[in-house]
């Protein structure tokens, strides 16, 4: 949440033309996550702020879709849990350029040999891919990353989690924080890499939605 540009509630309503009633209705239906309502004391009393870019995008998306979908359907679409229904095959994964082939081979060596990838696998792959490509992590250290993500990634879908990769005297540690908080290390430890998990999720969702407008994969799963 830090370093994000904020917008006041008043400004939001003015810019988007929505009413208080709509804003509260969408909040009740969980179309707008609770964590986006940021309360701050100002000289006129307490004010509510929103992360500017996210809220403007979300309000626009809701306004565009609300004529065709019910609010409950929209809520499902925006729910961070909705991603758990996504399943991709190996071919789709490569076609959509989510991950490089080299990373995929390592993943299949270390984790299960599967042909279908659920969203938590995709998330792991995406993060692993970036860590390997940037040269921050070697393939032997990848196992730790897979372990921590496998056990915990689903817990932080709706949070603002970060993954840290730290080395101290040649020993590496991978850990996840539930929110984007400040982390302080002792002087011999070195922060090698930090990945914002929500950024990876956004990227994945965007890729999947772009190439798959009909929500085919979600439909398949329901059958």
């Amino acid at each position: 949440m830090r370093d994000e540009e904020l917008i006041t509630k008043k400004e939001l309503l003015e810019r988007t033309g929505i009413s208080y009633g709509q804003l509260y209705r969408w909040k009740r239906k969980q179309l707008i996550p609770e964590s986006w309502f940021i309360r701050k004391a100002t000289f006129t009393g307490q004010e509510t702020f929103f992360p500017k870019e996210k809220i403007l995008k979300r309000v626009q998306a809701i306004s565009e879709m609300k004529d065709n979908l019910s609010l409950d359907e929209l809520a499902e679409k925006f729910s961070p849990r909705a991603v758990t229904k996504i399943v991709l095959t190996e071919q789709e994964l490569l076609d959509q350029n989510i991950v490089s082939e080299a990373t995929l081979i390592i993943f299949k060596e270390l984790a299960a040999k599967v042909n279908e990838f659920r969203f938590d696998d995709l998330l792991t792959l995406s993060i692993l891919d970036q860590m390997l490509k940037s040269g921050q992590m070697n393939r032997f250290e990848a196992q730790d990353l897979l372990d921590v993500l496998k056990k915990n990634s689903s817990k932080i879908y709706d949070k603002n989690g970060c993954l840290y990769f730290v080395r101290k005297m040649g020993v590496s540690i991978v850990f996840i924080t539930e929110e984007d908080v400040a982390v302080y290390l002792d002087e011999h430890a070195k922060l090698i890499g930090k990945q914002r998990i929500s950024a990876h999720m956004e990227r994945l969702k965007a890729v999947i939605e772009r190439t798959d407008p009909s929500d085919k994969n979600r439909e398949d799963l329901r059958k």
Binding site: K9, G21, Y24, G45
Partner: peptide, 18 residues
Amino acid sequence: EGDDLYLEDTEAKVIRGN
């Protein structure tokens, strides 16, 4: 905060509405 507000016997610090 609301679109259409009518109040009687109410004590409030701030009211925002249409």
